[in-house]
Amino acid sequence: MTESGARKRRPPFWSSERPWIWLLPIIVLLFVYSVYPFIFNVVISFHRFDPMTKAFRWNFPNNWIDLLTNADFLKSFRTTFIFGGAALLTELVLGIAIALAFDRNQVKLRSLWQSLFILPMVVPPVISGLMFRFLQNADYGIVSNILYALNVIDRTEPLIGGTGRNVLLGLLIVDVWQWTPFVALIVLAGLKAMPHEPIEAAIVDGANRWQLFWEIKLPLLRNVLAVVILFRIVDLLRLFDYVAIMTSGGPGGNSETISHFAYRMHKSIEWGMVSVVGIVVLILAIIITNAYMRLFKVKF
């Protein structure tokens, strides 16, 4: 890609032929805002820091052992993955279906519907959390009452409340409401970017709509879906706002995600633990993403 002539000349270090100049600002910023906290966390994770006595003592490997044997942490781990999986799946299925519906040719007032539809994306999660706390109130919440009426859940086990059996469903509703539009939007863009030839060829071959979707469109959407899934995974892994606002991790710790667990430790001034959680999550995220990118052969 780069011209071969330039390589021979060895341009000076500050020349715009060198990538560093271009990348410097972003590298510096990301370094300060992500590598520095990371190093900070690594240091803290080996110590016990008590702000009151200003004690700062070597405490390895106690923070690590404490965390990895903490039942609440292991539960939050499980919750994060169960919730993340369910949310991802629901959003993908709904997102693709909705994108297909919006991709049809004869939709009148398309931009109005699209705008209304993607509006949830721009409601800050804090506010949608509060809003759904109202809408999912066990007693008068409209969402709860619709679900009672449809016999999806029972009045004794409301979305947020009871023994906490349905709390993840409650959070799922918010997450799906808020982020399905994001998925659908990107899939929609993918559908619009799709080459016409294979589809036309398939139509000529007499493929029905179902075959067209499974055999032509879905494979062509692979890259798009890979990107969308990646971004949703990253966000779901650090799910925090809804949990903090709607449930505080309850009832009975049933909705505590890893991020919220870390937040609880932060409040308890167990910063050693927070740091360890941070490191664990980051390592985990990198592993998942890498594996994922290999698996789907996503290339940026």
Binding site: P37, V234, A262, V274, V281
Partner: peptide, 9 residues
């Protein structure tokens, strides 16, 4: 990966 750091941390 910088986007994956939980903000809490």
């Amino acid at each position: 990966s910088t986007r994956m750091m939980p903000p809490v941390v």
